[in-house]
């Protein structure tokens, strides 16, 4: 069975749990004590990933690091419909890849801000937030124009792709880094659409769409 070296509060690990759940793929999560144990820097883990980063996925003798690379692998291998990552459509693969790189940019800004606030990482918080807002502005505009063409997702087509999964976690967790999404209405609507994809699951800090979300808003407003 697929093994995912996993940390619950990591948005990059969540990307993979999310896609595997949407694809109906079974896996075994191996919990890694990222914090406070710093197990991702331990000798045994560095043998699996010398970069000392989560997540890592092991499947059939294939050992992969990097959340975006693993999304590519999972979709190419386990999605027979080819919707999530259409391997025979070069233009679309190029488009998806450019948004996978964009997702890395979200990690180094919005996720870094969240680590600063929650786990006291020594980052320049103002630079992290400014960088995240710059990317969110670009994404919001992109999604706004997409909506004008009746498109729901980051890349053209009726079905979401791994580009949506790659970008979603650290966008939806941004407020933990003090980055409000108030000024990004198209991003907010897109987040709601992602939450309605069949097989969507939450992680700590992410709430489901629909009645439960509404109820929570009522609670925190009270």
């Amino acid at each position: 069975m697929i093994k995912l070296y996993d940390y619950e509060l990591s948005g990059n690990c969540y990307k993979l749990r999310l896609l595997m759940n949407m694809l109906g793929v079974d896996y075994e999560a191996v919990p890694v004590d990222f914090y406070p144990g710093r197990e991702h820097k331990s000798d045994w883990f560095l043998k699996i990933n010398p970069l000392g980063q989560l997540p890592v996925l092991v499947d059939d003798g294939v050992v992969l690091r990097d959340a975006q690379a693993i999304l590519v692998y999972l979709a190419a291998k386990y999605d027979p419909s080819g919707n999530w990552y259409p391997v025979d459509d070069p233009a679309k693969l190029g488009d998806i890849s450019q948004w996978l790189a964009f997702a890395d940019g979200i990690t180094s800004t919005a996720s870094a801000a969240r680590l600063h606030e929650g786990l006291f990482y020594d980052f320049d918080i103002d630079a992290c937030r400014a960088g995240a807002h710059r990317l969110f502005r670009i994404l919001d505009e992109h999604l706004w124009f997409a909506e004008k063409q009746d498109r729901d997702w980051i890349c053209p087509g009726a079905h979401p792709t791994i580009a949506d999964i790659a970008c979603f976690p650290y966008v939806i967790l941004s407020e933990e880094g003090g980055i409000s999404r108030q000024d990004y209405p198209a991003i907010r609507r897109w987040c709601d659409r992602v939450k309605r994809i069949q097989g969507f699951i939450v992680m700590s800090g992410v709430f489901p769409a629909g009645p439960a979300g509404g109820r929570l808003n009522a609670l925190s407003a009270a």
Binding site: E8, L9, P31, D33, G37, G118, E175, E176, G205
Partner: peptide, 20 residues
């Protein structure tokens, strides 16, 4: 320990946005 910690951090991670 890592399993017990994961459980507690999962719970606390759910409270965090409510608190904030």
């Amino acid at each position: 320990e890592r399993v017990m910690r994961r459980f507690q951090q999962t719970i606390f991670g759910q409270d965090k946005p409510i608190l904030e």
